Amino acid sequence: MTDAATSALLATVERSPAAAAAHDRAGWVGLFAPDGRVEDPVGSRPHVGPEQIGRFYDTFIGPRDITFHRDLDIVRDTTVVRDLLLEVAMGSAVTMHIPAILRYDLRESAGQWQLLRLRAYWELPAMMRKFLGNGVSAMPAGLGLARALLGNQGLAGTAGFASGFRRPAGRGKRPVRTFLAAIASADSVAAQTLLSPGATVTFGDDTSADLAELSTQLAGARPVKVLAAGSTVAVSLASSRQRGVLFADVAGRDGTIATVRYFPGD
């Protein structure tokens, strides 16, 4: 991808936090393609199309002040992966700091880039524990969120959001850490034992790789952030060679790894 195309993708993605900060509902919803979808957090029920995405905005973005503290942006093909910390003011008394990894998939239409899919990897149970740790001061914000969920999305939408608490990937965090330690030390044999039969390993979404090639990329790498959302463990990695983000989809009750997708940074 050319530098100009990369800059255009990043500029489109950057309009999302800018619109959120400006409380620009039309601008934020308008970034998405007509068939765009939001999965926030991954594992909750997706919001598809402008009407549902608008309700998502009204529930979670519009009533709050959200600051994006960026750590890393990676562009590969038409995907932007952003490692960041979300600072979310839930009210005058409660501000949450949420470690997250965002994945934006984009599509060009009539010469303009649109967001096709936004996936937000963060841990809903951990966020809720932190939120409740604020005690009595969290009650007004909690009641406000409950009213917004029910008012904008009804019982079905509220249940769809709550499904984010079910995280099959939670049991996969330890196997993924063990897999990465083996890869970082070039122990492909040990890494292979943590993969399911037929597991796929790719750079990005579709460039096939073997474990030796992955080890070369991740020699000496260490996890900076490990997040379980839905059936995916998302990991921000750092080594002397590069930064990167790895997505591992897990399957089975033992957290066996079925898919590994590594997005290397520059």
Rank of each mutant, 00 (worst) to 15 (best):
A5E: 15
T12Q: 10
T12Y: 08
T12I: 11
S16E: 10
P17E: 02
A20L: 01
A21D: 04
A22T: 01
D24E: 04
L31E: 02
F32G: 00
P34I: 07
G36T: 05
G36N: 06
D40G: 06
G43M: 00
S44I: 00
R45C: 02
E51A: 15
G54H: 12
R55L: 14
Y57S: 13
T59R: 13
T59D: 10
R64H: 15
D65R: 13
T67L: 14
H69Q: 14
D71H: 11
D77P: 04
T78F: 01
T79S: 03
V80D: 02
V88G: 05
M90L: 14
S92R: 15
S92M: 12
I98K: 03
P99Q: 10
A100D: 10
R103D: 05
Y104H: 10
R107E: 12
G111V: 09
W113S: 02
W113G: 03
Q114A: 09
R119A: 12
A120Y: 00
A120S: 15
E123G: 03
L124I: 02
L124D: 01
L124W: 00
M127W: 14
M128D: 05
F131G: 10
G133D: 04
G135N: 10
V136Q: 11
A141V: 04
G142V: 05
G142T: 04
L143R: 11
G144D: 14
G144A: 15
A146H: 00
R147E: 07
L149K: 03
N152L: 06
Q153G: 01
L155H: 10
L155E: 15
A156H: 05
G160E: 11
G164K: 05
F165A: 14
R166Y: 15
A169S: 15
A169P: 06
G170S: 11
R174F: 03
P175A: 07
V176C: 08
L180M: 02
A182Y: 06
I183W: 04
A186G: 04
A190Y: 01
T193F: 00
T193Q: 14
L194S: 10
A199T: 07
V201T: 08
G204E: 08
D205N: 08
D206W: 09
T207K: 13
D210M: 11
D210F: 11
T216S: 14
A219V: 10
A221W: 02
A221L: 05
A221D: 01
P223H: 13
P223Y: 12
K225V: 11
V226Y: 04
L227K: 09
G230P: 03
A234P: 09
A234W: 10
V235Q: 08
S236F: 11
R243K: 12
R243I: 05
G244Y: 02
L246V: 03
A248V: 06
V250I: 15
V250N: 07
A251N: 13
R253Q: 12
R253F: 09
I257E: 07
T259D: 15
P264N: 02
G265N: 07
